[in-house]
Nucleic acid binder design. Structure first.
Lengths: 345, 345
DNA sequence: TTGAAAGCGATACCAC
DNA sequence: GTGGTATCGCTTTCAA
């Protein structure tokens, strides 16, 4: 069932069928109706590969995210969902590529073999060979996150520095002086993950300015790591009264660890950090946090990419978002009932 | 940069380059080396659209899941991740399609325009027009889940009936007599979602056999709905001592509702159900549940689809999984401390 | 307003 | 062991 068959049955040429479909040249109403009738009758749809070959564009984009083993986070899910739905509104298909680096097969296939017109990259690293590669090739890409030299790139990012600083400020305002920072796994920090680095920086600087006493930890992306992390925190300094976390997946474990240690949140211990609202609201008490606007970011990334595809020579654009902290129920003033401090003090 | 260019620079014909790449006919080592050198030098990769057009296959599969608004569940994430990674090992790309029904644009595009060789469908309904459509077209598809007439289809599914029954049995063995069932949202039940229906059936029958007193509820896929649902349950029958849930996304809210009502889990109230292990372990106390082997299911679905694509005329295959219940910390004997019963009895 | 034919970039059959 | 060429299904220029 191809365009030639339609042409034959409608008694016109293939080009006329093509033009009737694309509307790139006028076709008499009569002819158009005739063609349309045949198309409806046969349920014809033009072959995407042939069209892509002729047009030089596939109408598909790639969504590149690192293969996480079994450690996908809820935030990633929200990004994926919003990117796919936004792309659908522009009639773009989305190809998923589980690629951590430039050299991954799937990455090479999607981009090298021109299966897609552009790409959206997740989980950006400060030095990111994927981004470098695409940049030097001038391949249309938009990052969810920023590299160390973001000026020339297209991206939508979060101001992790400001977010972490806001968390510190919030806790400091509540009177907390000894605060722990629960970062993503060390592996990711070493790999140069943007959020882990900028978040850590923001936390450290803000805490220094406020004269807080801090310790920083890396924590695996799962509940049991979170629980173990809290044990370390309280072991290292039992007088700690609050923590800031970037590690959404460990959150449940952090809460559990605190409960096991007999620290009531928020009476004895405050918890805050950066997380998508849906996940902040599943835990009890609900997490006071900077809400990652994941679906907005996914949509913006698609919009930027579509714009870049439509006007390949436009200047780079980006959006830096800094959502404010949503007050929920996991933080409180330090003075209320520092039971452990009293005992030990 | 196309195959003709490579051929010219290597001083051979285009067919020789093609055969050197595909190995479908012998090429002298000398020629091959010459070609390879040029390819490496120019970083040539064959164009996927052209190849797809010539071959009649795209080496891509579709992953179809309903557009969930902002209510994606953790289980869906695990499916997506495992499908993508499994597909990558077979050198298939994955196109995501947010399509609830047959008539969705994205669904029509992916399948009608032959962008993909086959499809994996998630969130199957007992009567599913997507499945019906693909079946009548004999389009290679594999379902994650079963329709009402699964014999002729290819699928990998969960025995929801057995799973729900196992939950009932577990609770009955612990002495619980008044048990609530927390299902997915009513909208999904009405739409005919397989898990919601078969789970409900299994629960109801098993409870009847055991002579339990039960009530069943639909609950939105989010924490606050879960909390509200618990309030309804305890309002309708304060003597309820346990619940079974299929609603992973509401779990955090269910726990919160119980905590607010002063019911300690598992001392005063037992909770069990069906959930992916990662999510069961996030909550405190960790959920005793039938663990959905999401990543195994995703992998199996890909394997079935690849097999179907390789041998288009083989008989339908499927896998019905019935993971047993993992004992964690959310259930306990009813007798221990039924505080409310005592008060009211 | 329409038709014929030359691409797009591969594959694979037919010759030699 | 290698080359020439028709073919996949569509788009678009050129001609009428």
């Amino acid at each position: 069932m191809n365009i030639g068959e339609i042409a034959k049955r409608a008694g016109v040429s293939r080009s006329t069928v093509s033009y009737a479909l694309s509307r790139k040249r006028t076709v008499s109403d009569e002819t158009r109706a005739k063609i349309q009738r045949v198309i409806d009758e046969l349920g014809y749809r033009p072959n995407a590969s042939a069209r892509a070959l002729a047009n030089g564009r596939t109408n598909a984009i790639a969504l590149v995210f690192p293969p996480a083993g079994d450690h996908y986070t809820g935030m990633q899910l929200d990004f994926i969902g919003s990117v796919v739905e936004a792309a659908a509104t522009f009639d773009y298909d989305v190809l998923l590529s589980p690629s951590g680096v430039d050299s991954d097969r799937s990455f090479q296939r999607l981009l090298g073999e021109r299966r897609v017109d552009g790409a959206i990259l997740m989980e950006i690293r400060l030095q990111d060979d994927r981004v470098d590669h695409l940049f030097t090739e001038n391949f249309p890409a938009v990052c969810i996150g920023r590299t160390a030299r973001p000026e020339a790139d297209w991206w939508v990012g979060l101001d992790h520095t400001a977010l972490a600083a806001a968390c510190v400020q919030h806790l400091a305002d509540l009177g907390h002086r000894k605060v722990a920072f629960v970062n993503r796994p060390e592996r990711l920090l070493r790999a140069g993950y943007e959020s882990a680095h900028r978040g850590l920086d923001g936390f450290t600087k803000a805490a220094a300015e406020r004269g807080l006493s801090v310790r920083t930890y890396n924590c695996g992306d799962d509940a049991s790591s979170g629980q173990a992390c809290v044990e370390r925190i309280l072991h290292d300094d039992p007088a700690t009264t609050a923590l800031v976390t970037l590690n959404e997946a460990a959150l449940g474990g952090l809460y559990r660890g605190l409960a096991h240690a007999g620290r009531h949140v928020p009476r004895d211990f405050s918890v805050t950090g950066v997380a998508a609202a849906r996940w902040a609201e599943t835990v009890t008490p609900q997490l006071t946090a900077a809400d990652v606007p994941a679906s907005q970011m996914g949509r913006l990334a698609v919009e930027l990419l579509v714009e870049r595809l439509d006007r390949p020579d436009g200047p780079p654009r980006h959006h830096l978002l800094a959502p404010s902290i949503s007050l929920r129920a996991s933080t409180g003033p330090v003075g209320t009932a520092p039971s452990v401090l009293r005992r030990s003090g």
